[in-house]
Design a binder for these strands. Structure first.
Lengths: 327, 327
DNA sequence: CCGGGTGATGTTTACGTAAACATCGCGGTG
DNA sequence: CACCGCGATGTTTACGTAAACATCACCCGG
């Protein structure tokens, strides 16, 4: 910076003013400084800036994996909106979804150059980490029921599941079987709860729950068991991948979809429209979730205020070819 | 830090030594300092550290999208290995895959707190950005043919495609049809080239190429056209998603897979084993790609040397139920 | 018993930037 | 015509850390 100032014949403070876009620099001077910068290949040092300003213009994202579509799409949206606001995003992967792993991530967080964090994680693990959350670090949580303690952004899982189950009942099915996700998943829990509630309110029999782990393979195994139930005519899978597995199991067992059995998924993966048959599913707006996260976090950073509460992003049912009236 | 030093009754330099784990601090003193840190909730300021050290311990990752499985899995692996080496990773999304978008990302890069970048991008776009690449920034490129100018890490696309095509020929198919990816994709280009080479070397007829855009829907459209070719008995799709679309198209047109037509994909998505039928495909080791990227970049950062050249990560064919001898 | 060495700790300084305050010159007004 | 005010620019300083150098106490061998 000093070199630039010397070459441009001004003080380093003026260079600073130009590089930060501050007003109060006359056009001719500004031009000179810009020329000097160009000529010397000057680049502001972000470490020094952060040190001086006391902020990093960076948001951390803590998550277990990018392997699920939901997470990677959400992160992508977060990155895009953060960039738009002049913030960079730093990925903080938690190697193993255990208490130790989470604790490690939150401990590292203290040394990390971030002004706030977005946590994409089940809340019971967050509880463990809470005590080590560095003071002054703003947080927004995704996919959690911690709305009483943190600002939470979430898809309206319950409403999506309700739409799915009602759609099947409306088609005339007597009841709906459910393939749920792993026990520790809050999202899975809420989808299952909504499924149960709709059936109970409609006074329908409540079939036993099949449990999967989100993977297509676990859906396949659940599907094999469901195919063995002669009176199972409608299945609501807690995500599209498991629905894919269910489709394969039913097909292999000679149960035609949607003629014999109807299947509904959740997520609306881009590929779901190309399954055999194209899958009726609940669409999630991950981009909107990411946008709301950034918005909520920046509001905190700028106002120095955290308001707990949950922002719900709506879902909608996409009807394709995997559902029909019962035989 | 000064407060900690005061409370522990030592100098700030000793606090620094403790917090960086430097030797030459007696155990009793160390303990005292750690206690004081704990008590005051001291956290080292990473901006000041970066300023003093002249490095950020951060790696930037420039990419267009996390929406493709390959990218998100690679990024995940990069993040995991970087974390292991004490590096954080910053995502630099390029909003639009145009020259302007790329230029913007590389310009921002100069102000970003990174010691090096991993670029997951087609090379011809990189060329545009090259002039603006800040000097002193180390680069590793993924999925590119820039091996003569940059260190490149890549999956052995050509060998994977060769394995796929040879597998189909070995089954007795007279020739193999190909659904390729978008024209600007270097990966798609190499897979197509290998397909063409194997057919030519085996003196087989070369059917016209069907072009898709990686999506299942584009694969479906290509599949409809292929289903209309009575002598098409074997299809090599350049990725699994397009293969999924091909499967649906063939099924809808009454061509049975694998009885009438064999299909091979590329990527080995986790879901590919649950397609109808389970897909024979080429497995890519994204985790290894990520690992090599980090390794290569850190080598540069530590040695201050860049050696252009390409590291190839092997692929292997996974044989499932979508391929069989011709009818 | 003394000098040299060694290991533990303290002091000084600089990293690059931007806020706060200081200065300078010019135009307008009483 | 002198002074006020304001806009443009310069000077000083501090952000938190760690390298380089300085100091000090103690131990060992001659």
């Amino acid at each position: 910076m000093a070199d630039v100032a010397r070459l441009a014949g001004v003080s380093s403070q003026t260079v600073s003013r130009v590089s930060t876009g501050h007003p109060g620099v006359v056009e001719a001077t500004r031009r000179q400084v810009l020329d000097a910068m160009q000529q010397l290949g000057y680049r502001p040092n972000s470490a020094a800036r952060a040190l001086k300003r006391g902020e990093f213009r960076t948001i951390g994202v803590i998550l277990f994996t990018l392997a699920t579509t939901g997470n990677s799409r959400t992160v992508e949206a977060i990155a895009a909106h953060a960039a738009q606001e002049g913030y960079a995003i730093t990925l903080i992967p938690v190697a193993v979804p255990t208490q130790d792993g989470v604790l490690g991530a939150f401990t590292r967080l203290g040394e990390l150059a971030v002004d706030g964090v977005i946590v994409i994680m089940e809340v019971h693990l967050l509880d463990v980490a809470h005590p080590t959350l560095p003071p002054g670090v703003r947080v927004v949580v995704v996919d959690s029921d911690a709305g009483d303690r943190y600002p939470v952004v979430d898809t309206d899982q319950a409403d999506g599941a309700r739409q799915a189950v009602r759609h099947l009942l409306d088609l005339g099915h007597r009841t709906v079987w459910h393939v749920t996700g792993p026990a520790e998943s809050f999202a899975a829990e809420r989808r299952a709860l909504a499924w149960r509630t709709v059936l109970t309110e409609a006074a329908r029999p409540l079939p036993p729950v099949e449990r999967g782990d989100w993977s297509a393979l676990s859906g396949y195994r659940a599907g094999l068991r469901l195919a063995a139930e002669p009176d199972c005519t409608a299945v609501f899978a807690a995500n599209d991948q498991m629905a894919l597995g269910v489709l394969r199991a039913l097909h292999e067992q000679g149960r035609r979809v949607p003629h014999d059995v109807s299947v509904v998924g959740f997520d609306d993966l881009p590929d779901a429209a190309s399954y055999l048959p194209p899958l009726t599913t609940v669409h999630q707006d991950f981009a909107e979730v990411g946008r709301r996260c950034v918005q909520g976090l920046l509001a905190q950073i700028r106002n120095t205020r955290a308001e707990p509460g949950t922002v719900l992003v709506p879902t909608r049912l996409i009807t394709r070819a995997s559902t029909a009236p019962p035989p």
